[in-house]
Design a protein around this nucleic acid. Structure first.
Length: 108
DNA sequence: GTTTTGACGTAGC
DNA sequence: CGCTACGCCAAAA
């Protein structure tokens, strides 16, 4: 173990376990991993997750804002994907984010 | 080994 | 209500 991919792998696992039509935040994942201070690391990991089986579009910031949508191809792909899963997006923000919020601590 | 950066978060002004 | 500044951690240069 002791591999750098370990931290990334954990992020991938958590994100990959997000139920369909649900959303979570970087801080929630980071907090589940150990420290919510690692929120930035989660985003960093998701950046490396691009091209993997990790649905990074289900991960938004604490405000439910699609901060990472700029990293997706196009400009509405992330919002489109979420809406395709039943998540309503308004002004680059998840509608009823609080209700759609999926906390890894609850399921894991 | 040091420096920079980053898809965050919280606090302060 | 909006922007700035700082913190915190990990990876890449």
């Amino acid at each position: 173990m002791s591999k750098s991919e370990d931290f990334f792998a954990r992020v991938y696992e958590v994100v990959h376990q997000i139920p369909h039509g649900r959303v979570t935040s970087y801080g929630a994942i980071a907090a589940y991993l150990g420290s919510k201070k690692s929120s930035r690391i989660v985003g960093y990991a998701l950046n490396a997750a691009a091209g993997t089986d990790v649905p990074a579009h289900r991960v938004v910031n604490r405000n439910g804002l699609l901060t990472g949508k700029h990293h997706f191809p196009g400009s509405t792909m992330m919002a489109d994907l979420l809406q395709s899963e039943g998540v309503s997006i308004k002004d680059d923000q998840v509608v009823d984010f609080k209700s759609l919020f999926w906390d890894p601590r609850i399921n894991l």
